Simulated scan of single mutants.
Amino acid sequence: MAAAGGKTKIVQLTFDEARPSPVVLISGPEQFLADRASRAIREALHRVDPALEVHDIDATSYGSGELFTVASPSLFADPRIIRVEGVEKASDAFIEDAKRYLSEPADGATLVLRHAGGQRGKSLLDAVRGAPGQAAGATEVVCAELKKDAERLGFAQGEFRRLGAQVSPGAVRALVAAYGGSLGELAGAIEQLVTDVGLRLNESDIERVTEGRVEAGAFKVADAATAGRAADALVLLRHALSTGTDPIPMLAALNMKVRGMARVYGAVGSSGQLAKDLGMAPWQVERALKETRGWRESDLARCIDLAAETEWLLKGGTRDPNYALERYVLFVARKGRER
C-alpha cells in the first residue's frame, strides 16, 4: 500500500508479509518483528536456491565501497542477500554508497536495510521510498511497536494460527496478560505452550503455565473486580501485594478493562459491528458490555477520574499506595456505589 499524502511510492508490508525484492527496507522500532521479517526473506531466498550467499554489514562502522564489494557476483553467480543493520546510525559513507546502489541494484542481490527509527539516514530512506526505490522494485516492511491491547492480542492469535493451534479467546487474553513484556517473550511462550500442551488450548492450560506471573495475578484481580465480586477481588489483591507484586501492573490490568467498559457503554449494535467501529475484537465487546451492566454513566465517568487519581497516587502521590489501589478496586467492584 502507499503511505498517506501520496509521498511514499514504495509498497508497504506488515512483518508477516515480508518477501524478497531487490531492496527491502525494514523500518520501525520493534526489533523482534524486524528479525522475524529478515529471517523470512532469507528463508524464502534459500528455498529458491540453497547456494544463497549471506553477507552482513554494520552500517555504523561501514567503510566506503564495502557494499559494492559484497554485491558483486561471485565466480558462480550465486544469489546474494546483503543484510545491513544500524542504518539509523549509519556512517556518511554508507548513506552515500547506498543511495548510489539504489540507482542500479546488482543482479541477483537482495539488499535488506534495517532502520529502527530517527532522523539519521533520512535522505536514504526518502530515496528508497521515492521514485528511485520504486524503480528498483523496493518494498518496505513496517515494524511498529505493538502497544495497544488489541494489537498484542492480534499478534498472539496470529502466532497460534501460524503454529496450527486452536485456542479460546479467553486463553489468548490470559496469556497476553501474563506476558506483558517483550514480543519475543510472548512468542516464545506460545511456541513452548503448543509444544508442551498440543494444538488445542483453553484457559485452564494457560493458567497452569502462567500461575505466579505478576501480570496473570493482576488480571485475576481485575476479573473479580469487574465481575462485581468485591470480596474475592480484595482477597486476591491483598495476596498479590503481600507476595511482593508491584501495584502498577495491578492498576494497568484493571484500567485496561475499565477503558473497554467506557468505550462500549451506551453503544448500540451487534458485537461484530461495534467491534469494527471501536477497533476491538467481538469477544472483547461482548465481555465489556457484560461488565458494564449495573453501572450508571456518572459512576463510570467518576471511575475514569479515579483511575487517573490512583495512578498519580501510586507514582509518588501517597505514602500508602496499597490503600489507594484497594479503594479503586472496591470502587470498580461495587460499580461506583458506596456501601
Results as ranks from 00 to 15, higher is better:
246 D>K: 13
74 S>T: 01
112 V>K: 03
22 P>D: 02
41 I>R: 06
191 E>Q: 13
73 P>E: 00
90 A>I: 04
236 L>G: 14
91 S>G: 13
203 E>Q: 14
238 R>T: 04
220 K>A: 15
250 M>N: 02
267 A>E: 15
106 A>E: 05
48 V>P: 00
252 A>F: 10
296 R>T: 02
241 L>V: 03
68 F>I: 02
241 L>C: 02
102 L>P: 01
264 V>C: 11
261 M>C: 09
255 N>M: 09
254 L>Y: 13
163 L>E: 10
135 A>E: 03
226 T>D: 04
184 G>N: 08
176 V>R: 05
268 V>C: 01
137 G>E: 00
309 E>D: 15
284 Q>S: 04
215 E>L: 12
82 I>L: 04
145 E>F: 03
110 T>W: 10
208 R>F: 04
77 A>F: 00
201 L>V: 09
7 K>Q: 12
236 L>T: 14
189 A>R: 08
65 G>V: 00
57 I>K: 02
20 P>A: 05
186 L>H: 08
315 K>L: 08
294 G>V: 07
323 Y>V: 10
271 S>C: 02
71 A>G: 01
94 F>Y: 02
304 I>C: 12
312 W>L: 06
127 A>E: 12
40 A>N: 05
142 V>C: 05
202 N>Y: 04
171 A>E: 03
142 V>Y: 10
15 F>W: 12
268 V>A: 08
252 A>N: 13
57 I>E: 12
304 I>E: 11
236 L>R: 14
81 I>A: 10
310 T>C: 11
94 F>W: 13
266 G>R: 12
97 D>S: 14
263 R>V: 00
71 A>E: 00
112 V>S: 06
